[in-house]
Amino acid sequence: MDQDTHELHASSFGAAAAAYAEHRPDYAQAAVRWALEAAPGPRVLDLGAGTGKLTATLVALGAEVVAVEPDPAMLAELRRALPTVRALPGSAEAIPLPDGSVDAVVAGNAMHWFDMAVAGPEIARVLAEDGVLAGLWNVMDDEVEWVAGLARVSGSEAVGPRDTPASWRAETADMHLAKTGGAARFGSPEQAGFPHGQTRTADSLAATLATRAGMLVMPAPEREARLGEIRAFLGSRPETADGEFSLPMQTGVLRVRRL
């Protein structure tokens, strides 16, 4: 997408902060452990932390967490949900922390919004020697037949190029690298996927998809029509028509070490 469209999508979440907090999934603990296993210490920056979905998992695993989020509404939701976490306004391109102050920087469903030409050196600045940068993404497992059907019905606005396992691997393989200008500050990337799931109903899964950036920026009549198609599909499937079900997912991780 062009820069204006990218910025429109990136700034869309604040208006839906409460829905994001309610409906977006957490992250598989095994994925977070793998992301951090090579970090030289427990100090972790959750960058682009949103409403604290990844932050909460980091806290549960005993990390010493500071969260940084640029959107005031998202940051307010994070502070409400996790009042004991140090949560600061800031961005990947302007991190409000001293040099070498964290052992790992993680980003949950956020790294694709970063301008890595600026953010890469900035992340490297705050990382300690041998520190780790890890991006995590929750993706829907479209190897399951009904999930593949849902992806087709939902369209790219709701199920985008990083939202299924194969496309996630291709889209994120070199996402840590600056695309323009500057030398890479990180080593060779590693990718891994970890089974995950989210308990949903047809209505709550539709509400989850409604928090995707492509859906948030749609004109309201078009968005409601798309959500109607999604609900109709879910209502037609025996796996999802009645009551609660588990949405098959993976948490994918891109992990690199600071050079």
Rank of each mutant, 00 (worst) to 15 (best):
Val66Ala: 03
Gly243Met: 12
Thr251Met: 05
Ser91Met: 07
Val68Met: 07
Ala134Met: 09
Asp2Leu: 12
Val68Ile: 09
Arg258Val: 02
Ala81His: 11
Val85Trp: 11
Arg185Cys: 04
Arg223Glu: 08
Pro25Ile: 02
Asp71Trp: 01
Thr51Pro: 01
Ala60Gln: 14
Ala81Lys: 14
Ala76Met: 09
Val105Phe: 08
Pro219Thr: 11
Ala17Arg: 02
Asp141Ala: 14
Gly149Lys: 12
Ala31Met: 11
Val102Tyr: 11
Glu37Cys: 07
Asp115Arg: 14
Ala148Pro: 08
Gly193Trp: 09
His112Cys: 06
Val153Leu: 10
Glu224Ile: 03
Leu150Trp: 07
Trp137Lys: 02
Ala17Thr: 02
Trp113Leu: 10
Ala17Asn: 04
Ala232Val: 10
Ala184His: 11
Asp99Arg: 13
Gln198Gly: 05
Trp113Gln: 10
Glu7Arg: 15
Ser156Phe: 14
Leu127Trp: 03
His23Asn: 03
Leu97Trp: 06
Trp113Thr: 12
Ser11Tyr: 06
Ala17Cys: 02
Asp242Thr: 13
Asp99Gly: 00
Ala241Ile: 08
Pro221Phe: 06
Glu7Gln: 15
Ala21Leu: 08
His6Val: 11
Leu58Ile: 05
Thr164His: 13
Leu36Asn: 01
Ser154His: 06
Gln250Cys: 11
Ala170His: 15
Glu157Val: 12
Val147Asp: 12
Thr199Lys: 15
Pro121Glu: 08
Ser101Gln: 09
Asn138Leu: 06
Gly187Ser: 05
Pro219His: 13
Met116Asn: 08
Leu216Asn: 00
Leu127Tyr: 04
Pro72Arg: 07
Gly62Thr: 10
Gly48Lys: 01
Trp168Val: 04
Arg212Tyr: 03
Glu77Tyr: 02
Met74Asn: 03
Met215Leu: 14
Ala173Gly: 10
Thr180Pro: 01
Pro42Gln: 00
Arg86Asn: 11
Gly155Thr: 02
Asp142Tyr: 14
Ala178Asn: 08
Ser188Met: 05
Asp103Ile: 04
Asp142Pro: 15
Met140Ser: 10
Glu145Val: 10
Ala210Cys: 03
Pro238Glu: 04
Arg79Ala: 13
Pro25Glu: 01
Ala184Trp: 12
Met215Thr: 01
Met249Arg: 12
Glu64Val: 07
Tyr20Ser: 00
